[in-house]
Amino acid sequence: MQMQTSLPASLPNSLPAGFEALEPFVEYWAGATNDIRWDRRARASMAEIRSFYEAAVPRADEGLAYLEQFPLDAMPDDATRLLRLLLSLPHAAMAVEFHGQPRAAASPFPHGMHIGRGPWPQGW
């Protein structure tokens, strides 16, 4: 399956100007696909999930507003990185807002379930 996965993940200033405070989270949380973002969250500790969630939630609305200037399927690399980072927030929210733990109680892990394609237009 062909997906856009080639962005360098953790360059200095990899995010658009103004979002420098989120740089420490890029390498782990700006996963290239929905499936990777889900897996990263499932493998993280609750402290790591909360740390990302608490840092990123206050910037989420501002980040989405910034990204609104670009077409979804033609963003510059730094904006794509910011989008992928923000798209990990719903994953983190499953742990923080629904489960109160990294994964749902009694759900198997590891498991054979995968998100084969993510939402469109990207499919990741």
């Binding site: 989405l64 609104e68 719903p90 929210a93 499953m94 379930m113 998100i115």
Partner: peptide
């Protein structure tokens, strides 16, 4: 737009969580 994409990520997360349960 990006907000709808954000909502769809949340929807896909939620469905995957439900299916895994």
């Amino acid at each position: 737009d990006v907000r709808q994409r954000f909502q769809q990520e949340h929807y896909s997360c939620r469905m995957a969580e439900i299916f895994l349960e």
